[in-house]
Write a protein that binds this DNA or RNA. Structure first.
Lengths: 245, 245
DNA sequence: CCTTCATTTCATCACTTGGTGAAAAAAGGC
DNA sequence: GCCTTTTTTCACCAAGTGATGAAATGAAGG
């Protein structure tokens, strides 16, 4: 229980100025062949956490995958949980700004002609595009978020802090398109939407075997061709029905 | 690495004849106050696995929660993974038969008048009813399944083995209602449906904070009032659009 | 009463876990 | 060539991990 003997080094005295630059700070140089060593560790941790969850991964596995000593991970990131948070945070803000930008663009380009499907597409499309163009790291990240999203005693606070604002933005915009819609219906519909979206983005491979090879979970083009319409029709139906509850 | 020294006791020589009966087998009686001890252990494991995942739970935690010795868990269930499988299996078949029964009943009661929404309701409704009437154990179980479903390197085989048949049944019945629908579209629509359904059933509490208290993830009545219509409209839209891919 | 046998407990093992302190290994500044 | 600073490695610990063997327990059968 003497884990507080040495203060965990939150920031190792600004090891590098920025991530991409090469200021070649003093001291021993990063052993990393080409890339920044911190990023290499985050990549390794991201992939492993995405596949096996927080508790299913050991610091030693991350160290082995990244090709570094376990102590180095603690040197850079502190405790294991802080490493996980670093992985989660690294891409969260990129994601958020991409979505806000997409919805801004849609609103501006469709003054007075917005549709439910258009809003939903603006909300989801950035994620699909990033997943397709962003490489394996982003795919792992989406799988990670999907897992956090479905772990009750884990994601609650984290998910809310980072993703609630953009969801509220979605709801607000939808209320412009459908002023008669009730908040309850929009929130529930969003819940359904996010379940579908995250499962599609996490590419579990389940649909591959289920469909006997006819569908592939990596085929995000197939998702794009159906998910917007699916969700939009769902929203419209829920709004139209307008249950009493 | 010498974990195979003693063969894991898969079946402890038929400890009891059946779960519910009380044949009062020979030997020391179960310490369990009223219920069967094996069930008590499974209940404890189920709740913990649902909250923290397989790797987030230790045998000692399960033992403490159930009020038994750790060795007893190994005596009854073998290795930790076998305990997990036992938890998963216990309710899987009940679930499957309930769904098949529901779909049988719907097909028989609506000869020639089936609708997409009706089929989907027959497919989902048993789960909602069981979750509402079945007590906390079933709620934990659904959260567990949702988690397994979203863990790529974990659920694949397990999920397929137990839940593929009823999904194929759903697809077949839908093809009766919409003979023009393509398999691709039905499988993808099902993928979206299951994402929504499992997230709703796992009652993560996220919608509670997101909606500022207006919605409650425990309110399965609200789910029932919207999910069928939402999914049915989504299916119809995807079928109608009929993308080339 | 005394054996039988399923059940339960206890002590323990071999190993892994997250985490730490001290020292070594480079680089730059003087 | 020193000195400072940062990065990397090594050895190690205390606490826990899953799992096991042997012994204790106590009802049922004879």
């Amino acid at each position: 229980m003497t884990s507080q003997v040495r203060a965990p080094r939150v920031q190792p005295a600004a090891p590098k100025s920025a991530t991409g630059a090469k200021p070649a700070g003093r001291g021993r140089p990063s052993k990393a062949t080409g890339r920044d060593l911190k990023e290499t560790i985050l990549d390794a941790a991201e992939g492993l956490f995405a596949r096996h969850g927080f508790h299913g991964v050991t610091i030693r596995q991350v160290a082995a995958e990244a090709g570094v000593d376990t102590a180095l991970i603690h040197y850079y990131f502190g405790a294991k949980r802080e490493l996980f948070d670093s992985v989660f945070l690294r891409r969260a803000e990129i994601l958020n700004s991409a979505r806000v930008l997409s919805m801004d663009a849609y609103e501006k380009s469709h003054p007075g002609t917005m549709t439910v499907e258009g809003v939903i597409e603006a909300f989801i499309e950035p994620l699909l595009r990033i997943s397709q163009d962003g490489g394996q790291g982003w795919k792992s990240y989406f799988a990670l978020v999907a897992q956090v999203n479905n772990t009750p005693a884990w994601g609650g606070e984290t998910m809310a802090r980072f993703f609630d604002p953009v969801v509220h933005r979605l709801v607000d915009t939808l209320k412009v398109v459908r002023p008669d819609a009730q908040d309850r219906d929009l929130y529930w519909s969003y819940q359904f939407l996010t379940g579908s979206m995250m499962l599609a983005l996490s590419e579990t491979g389940r649909i591959d075997s289920l469909s006997g090879g006819e569908c592939h979970s990596s085929d995000l083009g197939a998702v794009r061709a159906r998910l917007f319409a699916y969700c939009a029709a769902g929203f419209e139906a829920v709004i139209a029905r307008a249950p009493q509850g």
